[in-house]
């Protein structure tokens, strides 16, 4: 029983963090219809920003998370304006190639700039309680809460604010929303920055829980893509559900069977979902 609870807790925690990465990706795809392969690099850069802020210069942890989000927001927006805007409306493969190039450049220059050694960000919250064999780490609880709060905040942002509504309008129909006076170019860089900032915060959370290296972005990209495909591209809710499914598979199957089976199983699940629901669980049929 306690084992089940531990598995469920771990899976839930993982799922929320995965969802946080994936939501940024799904937002970027929804608005711009580009495959941002370098999304994991934003995750990595976010974690390193916090590392330099907190572990190197010894400044406040939570302020660092905010700084990291702002820095990566700006970085993402600049990338969008400089690299992806010229490719807007062109074949999706071109933006894919550019983002692949970004993966290579960012992760390797990360190795040159930050060094290749593994680093860790000291936790802001420590300790925990052992409840009848199930360990509740305060750190994980805080991280889950932050992730959940951000997802909810984003959901409200997309539904209640003017900019959020504009983002959704552009995702729905760019031409009509442009006719209605939405500045689509502005929406593009905002959405790109926002998606990147979400990844950066996820990077801060996961980087604290685990360790950080310049090559860690690729892992995040893989997880984010797995989730986004499951949930359906462009769907925030789908990304949340996809994240939780993946987190549970990772936790439960690894604990009960083994890690390699968990990984193969998650790919099989993705394949089956796509075969039976070709646009993911909650996705629209993008053409």
């Amino acid at each position: 029983m306690t084992e089940l609870l531990q598995m469920a807790l771990t899976g839930f925690n993982l799922g929320l963090m995965y969802a946080l990465i994936a939501i940024g990706l799904t937002l970027i795809f929804g608005v711009m219809r580009i495959i941002q392969y370098a999304h994991g690099e934003m995750f990595m850069l976010g974690a390193f920003t916090l590392y330099y802020w907190n572990a190197e210069f010894g400044l406040n942890y939570w302020a660092g998370v905010g700084v990291s989000a702002v820095v990566i927001f700006c970085f993402g927006a600049i990338l969008q304006i400089v690299l992806f805007r010229p490719l807007h409306g062109k074949n999706i493969l071109y933006s894919l190639a550019v983002s692949l190039g970004l993966v290579l450049i960012i992760s390797s220059s990360g190795q040159i700039l930050f060094g290749t050694t593994v680093k860790g960000i000291p936790s802001a919250v420590t300790g925990g309680v052992l409840l009848g064999g199930t360990y509740l780490s305060y750190e994980r609880m805080v991280i889950s809460a932050v992730s959940a709060a951000l997802i909810i905040a984003l959901w409200f942002f997309l539904r209640r604010t003017t900019t959020g509504l504009a983002i959704r309008a552009v995702a729905e129909d760019p031409d009509t929303s442009a006719l209605q006076g939405v500045k689509t170019r502005r929406i593009h860089w905002i959405a790109f920055g926002l998606g990147s900032a979400m990844a950066a915060i996820a990077g801060c959370m996961m980087g604290t829980l685990l360790s950080i290296v310049p090559t860690m972005g690729f892992l995040a990209t893989i997880k984010a893509f797995m989730i986004v495909i499951m949930g359906g591209l462009g769907s925030v809710f789908g990304a949340l559900i996809g994240g939780l499914i993946l987190g549970m598979i990772d936790s439960v199957v690894t604990t009960t069977i083994s890690g390699d089976v968990a990984l193969i199983l998650s790919f099989v699940v993705i394949f089956l979902i796509l075969v039976f629901r070709p646009s993911g669980l909650f996705g629209q049929d993008w053409e």
């Binding site: 986004v228 193969i264 790919f267 099989v268 075969v275 993911g280 049929d285 053409e287």
Partner: peptide, 22 residues
């Protein structure tokens, strides 16, 4: 696999490639 379309095909094929390798 051919039931999926466009970007989803791309992603599903990625899962196929990964399962083959695994």
């Amino acid at each position: 696999l051919m039931r999926t379309r466009a970007v989803y095909f791309f992603m599903a094929s990625w899962a196929v490639g990964e399962v083959i390798k695994r």
